[in-house]
Amino acid sequence: MTEQIQPRLREPSQRVSPRARLMWGLGAALEAGALLVVLVVVGPAGGWLPLPWWALVPVALGAVAYAVVVPQWRYRVHRWEVTGTAVYIQTGWWARERRIAPMSRIQTVEHAEGAIARLFGLATVTVTTASAAGALEIDGLERDRALALVDELTLMADSVPGDAT
């Protein structure tokens, strides 16, 4: 390669719903809470936990940070974009993953609403390709927007010929 400036990928243009932070926060809080309950209540009662009480402090701090910081972080990373020819998403927090798939290789488009997501009126759209390694998942979309996106993707994927392998 010569000394010219190399092109870089930009971030996808669309952000997910701001309510996704609350959804991820609630999910993380439930996980962290379950861990703390096990450590504080069940452990000492069962008598199998050899931890001194002060060791619980950093664990609790970590759990709170996990429930508060990670959803914010995730919200800053999660982005998506659909053009006439491709789907481009960015997910993750510690490990950031960008996935690009051409419209012509889309096999299925899936709409899902988890229990927590429904509390916040959110939904997940998953786009699969013929490769098991290539599913694109957009988490935390407003339900109406997700449904519209599913329709749009289905239409566009249908209009491209070929068996997508």
């Binding site: 950031r96 993953e97 960008r98 996935r99 690009i100 798939a101 051409p102 290539g134 997508a164």
Partner: peptide, 23 residues
């Protein structure tokens, strides 16, 4: 079929990424 570019925080600091071609 598509591309996955995955980079952990450490990888991003070193300006590296794992490039995956799905098939």
């Amino acid at each position: 079929i598509g591309w996955n570019l995955r980079a952990t925080w450490f990888q991003r600091r070193a300006d590296l990424t794992s490039l995956v071609a799905t098939t």
